[in-house]
Design a protein around this nucleic acid. Structure first.
Lengths: 228, 228
DNA sequence: CGCGCGCTTGACTAACTTCAAAGATGGTGG
DNA sequence: CCACCATCTTTGAAGTTAGTCAAGCGCGCG
């Protein structure tokens, strides 16, 4: 039944496993069915509660998914990077607003075509399932992060997460703003900035530019992230 | 494809819909396949990373699912109340430790029997799917709660959530301790207690006993919870 | 080259936590 | 059945972390 009772939230983000996105590409067959869409910075892919007609896969750039409280407070539930699949979590309506963080290209698939391929090609179906499971586990990790980790622990966890998802061990590109990161980690922009500055002053990371960090001592960063 | 790409975290907790648990009971056929288990207060149902052999349904009492950081900090990812189904989120291993909050009885099913019934009985399969989707949406709401809500907003949200899941509009029973609630909401026991005291002093709730609260002004409680 | 936006940094404030003690609660055994 | 004890809850006061407000810097774009 797990084989037909799976749902998902987000791309694979659990740090323990190799990124799902780097596995051999079962999406190849699907790609022929999708259409490429170019998005300007801040362009909206879909709004929360829009009818969920499409799935998307990020090709270049980055997408953020957000929820809002009545008074405008924002929470960024996930960043989607190249290779990540968006929309698996939607039932009939999208649960978030999705926006391009930078100039971004995505492939857009109709739900119909994805569903058909999943039905026809078991490997592809299982692959989606695997993405879903990792996304679920990632969401659970995020609950612990938001509920119980300190600012610096959250930042360290975030950096390692992004690094692993990029397949990079050293140099990490952060396309999103400090405000975006803060809204993802339940912090303010200033706290994110201070946290990065502090990690830098300790020699754990280096800031090559404000959107490019280098991990200088991964062991220490992991210790901080895992609250050892 | 959503029909065979669903996974789950937790019972239905989104406040907008009627509780799934109160729908006509497609579990009847399954119940014959399960065995009843009685649990003492604090008894462990399963540990995180145990091989996931069983699903459970709470009959009476309450179960909490927890994750721990290396230094012992705890996060309670969910409370499961009578009618709630536990274990749908597990792939091959459980993602949490599950413990009885009070004296509790559960029905235990083998994964095999649940999977067989889901395959054989489409209504049952769809029901599980529906539980899964609501659980997912609930988890997303929790991310916003932990990331962006204040202590009092979290407490108000929690009370309304529990009330709705019990099918009660007024009198809510809270079987778990203040510490359990705190670990669920990302707060300390003391902050939970102060929050409840404050809501009481404002006349929004009444505390009939420390584990029994009465909602006296639901409109105000909802305003607080939704950060209007 | 200069302008604007985002990032950094500092000083202060607010919210929540921590530490501590007193007050309820409920379960148990005499 | 009641009294006692352990445990949980409430409340107070002090301490910490992160948030707010504000100013200056620097990068990238026009």
């Amino acid at each position: 039944m797990p084989a037909n009772l799976q749902l998902q939230i987000a791309p694979s983000t659990s740090r323990a496993q190799p990124p799902v996105r780097k596995a051999p590409d079962e999406f190849a067959a699907l790609d022929r069915l999708g259409s490429v869409v170019s998005l300007q910075r801040e362009a909206v892919l879909f709004h929360e509660s829009d009818s969920a007609e499409h799935y998307f896969k990020v090709v270049t750039g980055a997408v953020r998914c957000c929820k809002f409280l009545a008074d405008g407070r924002r929470h960024v539930s996930e960043f989607y990077l190249p290779g990540d699949f968006i929309g698996l979590d939607a039932e009939s309506a999208y649960q978030f607003t999705a926006e391009a963080v930078t100039e971004t290209t995505v492939v857009r698939y109709t739900r119909r075509s994805v569903e058909a391929l999943a039905a026809q090609e078991p490997r592809f179906g299982r692959r989606l399932l695997s993405i879903a499971c990792h996304g679920l586990s990632a969401a659970q990790q995020k609950l612990v992060l938001l509920g119980r980790k300190t600012a610096e622990e959250r930042i360290a966890t975030f950096l390692l997460d992004i690094a692993d998802r990029c397949g990079e061990t050293e140099c990490v590109s952060l396309p999103m703003s400090r405000t975006d990161i803060g809204d993802h980690l339940g912090l303010t922009m200033e706290t994110v900035s201070r946290g990065l500055s502090h990690l830098k002053s300790e020699g754990v990371i280096a800031l090559e530019s404000s959107h490019k960090i280098r991990i200088r001592d991964r062991d220490v960063l992991e210790e901080i992230a895992d609250a050892a």
